[in-house]
Design a protein around this nucleic acid. Structure first.
Length: 525
RNA sequence: GGGAUCGUAGCUCAGUCGGUAGAGCAACGGACUUUUAAUCCGUAGGUCCAGGGUUCGAGCCCCUGCGAUCCCA
């Protein structure tokens, strides 16, 4: 403690070193926080210009360079020696990006920079950039943002590189990056500090860019079929349209209890009454329930309604939306899913609820007593509960997890579908399907119920053994009134955007595809 | 809500039986004008998640709390 520190480098923390260099950058007359930097090309586009790099012989003849594959076997140096005396020439380029790797060879440095289209190596020599710029280059740290002007060429080993004429300083990074090539692994920190995860962990940024492409593709597919996107309210006075516990909130001026929406359904249907014949909304819904690898309290839903349609049409639409989304991220119909695969070739398999029930349980779905006995064996509480609720419990337990899919499960028991039209030849069966893939419910669709009297009755009917918050049957008089004004027969479809993105990007956790998933508040201690 | 596992340097991780706190990367000083996770020499860096307990002695054992991950409900 009393020992005197004789060496000025003693005890300097990474941050102190960076702050020292920040001061130095200012002292050299540069703004350590940078400024507008025009005319830079994206690194991906610069890399695509590799064909413009030529070997120019002394007589002025330009020779194409060997391909990347050939350079695996022959060094560029040997290749050039064979061609005769000459020099490499390429286009003048300007790039900007984050320093992700740094190899210091004294009077020569190799700096890898990255933007959101790719990485490229900078060849930076003291003699080439000049003394003044070289001093600035001594102040660079991993993570800093820089710009570069230089010629696109290849090094002796064949690596496509920008041979720097000048380095521009664009922004200092005070925190050191995570371990190179290992990155940030702690899942908590990855989510709390998503910026580090995005900047440094392989594939994270691409996954979120894919998410954006998928959402865009969904919109394009629907708009291409004449659907119109709308924005419904997120604050609802009745949390209807789905069976879920809502978040409660309050409007002060109106002194009114409100709920964050749990579904988009009922307002989109009101629009159908108003003559919006093909509408959809992609939006956030909020469900005050548990958090799991498949559940985040806020998530994104697509709901689509098509006048004069039905659930069969919604199956075709689901296939189109998913097929187009796969194309939009440049993927193929067969996608990896962990150590398994998913084959999204259309048409997807279709089987009825009862068929699947029979197959996976061996119990006759029409024999209520047998189903009840089977459920009892599985440990379900069966007394005083509606037969269809019992059947639904068994279905979720024994069938859903077993479904590999993609498979459309069709024709659900009507009593658990209060917003769905019944089959004209069988009022006990609802024209509904759900799409399952590897046990995950991805889509849910109905031929929409448009009979106001039946809708009112179903809202009034609580199924035995179902708590109010687990039930979709919540009276919404305003919605029933809307139906009295004539909603066309229609097909309606809901797709869980997050789950679709999970499946298409091989992400087993929803937290990998939601930028900022809900986390417990950090303790202040 | 229940169970299991985890929390150690900026990052990734070791830490034996309870006995002086360790490595790699990053950082700092030095050498190097064609490197590829560059290499080589040297230096520094710790609230072992928090609080309590047991003990001569706790990163390690016990309790409580906080946070995380997975499984189950």
């Amino acid at each position: 403690m009393t020992e005197e520190k004789t060496n000025e480098q003693t005890g300097e923390s990474p941050e102190e070193a960076r702050r020292r260099k920040l001061e130095q950058i200012s002292a050299l007359g540069h703004d350590p926080w940078g400024h507008r930097f025009d005319d830079r090309a994206l690194i991906g586009d610069i890399r695509a210009r590799d064909g413009e790099v030529k070997y120019v012989l002394e007589d002025g003849t330009e020779v194409d360079l060997p391909s990347e594959a050939e350079l695996e076997t022959v060094s560029l140096k040997e290749w050039a020696a064979e061609k005769g005396k000459g020099k490499l020439n390429g286009p003048q380029v300007r790039a900007a990006g984050r320093i992700v790797l740094h190899r210091d060879k004294g009077k020569l440095q190799f700096i890898d920079i990255e933007d959101w289209t790719g990485k490229i190596q900078l060849f930076v020599g003291q003699k080439q950039v000049g003394e003044e710029n070289w001093e600035l280059i001594q102040c660079l740290d991993l993570g800093d943002l820089i710009g570069v002007d230089g010629m696109l060429r290849r090094t002796q080993t064949g690596e496509l590189s920008i041979f720097a004429d000048k380095i521009h300083f664009l922004t200092k990074t005070l925190d050191p990056p995570p371990a190179k090539h290992v990155g940030l692994t702690d899942p908590e920190v990855r989510q709390r500090k998503r910026y580090i995860d995005l900047a440094w962990n392989e594939g994270v940024r691409d996954r979120f860019l894919d998410r954006s492409r998928i959402v865009k593709s969904v919109r394009d597919t629907l708009q291409g079929q004449g659907f119109v996107e709308i924005e419904g309210p997120t604050l609802h006075s009745i949390a209807g349209g789905a069976a879920a516990r809502p978040f409660n909130t309050h409007h002060n001026a109106l002194d009114m209890e409100l709920y964050m929406r749990i579904a988009l359904e009922l307002h989109l249907k009101r629009l159908m009454v108003g003559g919006m014949e093909r509408v959809f909304e992609v939006g956030r819904v909020y469900r005050n329930e548990g958090i799991s690898p498949k559940h985040n309290p806020e998530f994104s839903m697509l709901e689509v309604y098509q006048a004069y349609g039905d659930y069969e049409l919604m199956m075709d639409l689901t296939e189109a939306v998913i097929s187009d989304a796969i194309k939009s991220i440049g993927a193929s119909e067969t996608l990896p899913w962990g150590d398994k695969e998913i084959n999204f070739a259309t048409p997807f398999e279709r089987k009825t609820y009862d068929e699947l029930f029979q197959i996976h349980t061996g119990v006759d779905p029409h024999d209520a007593a047998a189903v009840k006995a089977y459920a009892s064996e599985l440990g379900f509480d069966v007394e005083g509960r509606h037969p269809d609720v019992i059947k639904s419990d068994v279905f979720e337990e024994k069938v859903e997890d077993a479904l590999v899919g993609p498979i459309f499960v069709t024709d659900y028991p009507a009593s658990i579908c209060p917003l769905t039209k019944r089959k004209s030849d069988n009022p006990d069966v609802a024209e509904r399907f759900e799409l399952f893939v590897h046990g995950m419910e991805v889509a849910n669709a109905y031929t929409e119920l448009n009979d106001p009297d039946l809708q009112q009755k179903l809202f009034e009917t609580q199924l035995e053994g179902m708590s109010e918050e687990d039930s979709m049957a919540k009276m919404d008089n305003d919605f029933v009134t809307a139906l009295r004004n004539g909603m066309p027969p229609a097909g309606g479809l809901g797709i869980g955007i997050d789950r679709l993105v999970m499946l298409l990007t091989n992400s087993q956790s929803i937290r990998e595809i939601i930028l900022f998933p809900l986390l417990r508040a950090e303790s202040s201690s």
